[in-house]
Amino acid sequence: MTHISPSQHGAQADYDPWQLAEHLLGRPPLALQPVGESGWNNHLFKVKTEEGLLALKRYPVNDLRGRMAREAAALWFLAAHPPSPSPRLLSMDPTANGMLLTWVEGEPISQSSADIATIDAMLACMAQLHQLRHSSTATNLVAASDAVFNVEGARRQIRQRMRRLDDARQQHPRLDDFLRRLQSLADELLPRAQEQWSCEDPLPSALRTLSFSDFGFHNAIRQPDGRIVFVDLEYFGWDDPVKLASDTLWHPAMALRGELRRHFCEHAVKLYEESGDHNIRKRFATMHPLYGLIWCLIVLNPFIASAQQAPALVGQANAQRLEAQLAMAHRYADTLKTGCHLTYHPAIPPEQES
């Protein structure tokens, strides 16, 4: 059973990591160690206790997306329908922006270490989540972050992400040139997609699936026994299976290509087709380029943060990073009209292709 620990510090507690661990444990930990680099959205710590290791996850104070609440709901839901593909939530305090989870022992999965077995584990997780859509409690779950259920939903995301880059494009003429190119592509692809979808109504609930949203082996740990555990459910919820599959293919942290890409693409589409989604291949062909266009904009997110800094504070290293992200966005744009079976991936510069 999950323990919810209300803070005694008022409406919004301000704990340092050690205090947060002590608050959620109910006693001081034996040791606390940061895990990896600080992410955009959270901080992770390894907590040593008398009983063993736990994971402490700390969320940002101004969490406008409600990542903690979304992840907690997902973890509770999966724990109630074993076997869960994810860690177990042990304790949390929403006012302190933190939770304790079971520690997952194992190794992160890299692009170089991923194999067909890794893809099959992902497909098995997708199949399990799709089956769980029939659960009576699944209706309590919200839509996944940035879920898309029709062409208008994609159009809205493209427009919003374009708008977020308004300040940055004023400071970076090459970014402005690229966004003009991308707008031309959007003006071509969106009407075509609307014609192919041929219906303005959202995707029927019966055809939707439960999705990790930010799904892939970049958010997975291979345990010593070979079992793969999927972590980071901050964007979990209902979505179109096409969005889940397409995002996985476009995601730069995955960079699926070659046989792994072919295997995932074919089996993912088949999974949902066999469950009654007989139009999924047509919908995939319609929407996959639009999701690629959205990814063109996602990889440009560093420009948004840079635009909030004074030009004199943007160092050479950051400038080089922005150039690299812009080059990546150009490669994404170059591949928008291709199908599923790319032998390369736009996230990887040609000189780094093996």
Rank of each mutant, 00 (worst) to 15 (best):
A31K: 09
L190Y: 03
Q170G: 09
F212H: 06
Q309T: 03
L132N: 08
S86K: 02
R261D: 13
M99C: 12
L290I: 09
F230D: 04
K243D: 06
P302T: 00
D63A: 12
A74K: 03
L179G: 07
Y344W: 08
R169W: 04
I294G: 11
I228R: 02
L313Y: 15
Y291W: 12
C265G: 15
H263M: 01
H288A: 13
L293R: 05
A74T: 03
L101M: 13
C296R: 06
E50R: 15
R257P: 09
S84H: 02
H81R: 04
P6D: 12
E188N: 08
L53N: 14
A79K: 03
M99H: 07
R163M: 07
L123R: 01
A333L: 09
L132P: 11
C340G: 10
Y235S: 10
T248I: 08
I119M: 13
L233Q: 04
D334S: 04
S110G: 10
M287P: 06
P289T: 02
F212R: 01
M92K: 02
L56A: 10
V299H: 13
I228V: 11
H330E: 14
R261N: 12
A193I: 06
H330N: 10
F303I: 01
M122C: 10
Q160C: 00
E266A: 10
Q33C: 14
L207K: 11
L129V: 04
D146F: 05
L132T: 06
V47I: 07
A186V: 03
A79E: 09
A307V: 02
D115W: 03
R181K: 06
L244D: 14
D63L: 14
Q352V: 01
D115Q: 09
R261M: 12
P241V: 01
Q352I: 01
A245S: 12
F178Y: 06
A305E: 13
M328T: 10
F264T: 03
Q196A: 15
L100M: 07
I280C: 14
T286G: 09
E105M: 04
L141V: 01
A31I: 07
L293H: 07
V242D: 14
A55L: 15
F284T: 07
S198I: 00
K243G: 01
L342Q: 11
E105T: 06
N97S: 12
D14T: 06
E51W: 05
G39D: 11
P6W: 09
N62D: 15
L189Y: 08
F149D: 11
G315D: 15
H130G: 15
D187N: 12
D14N: 10
S184V: 02
S84I: 00
R262M: 00
L56Y: 12
H288N: 14
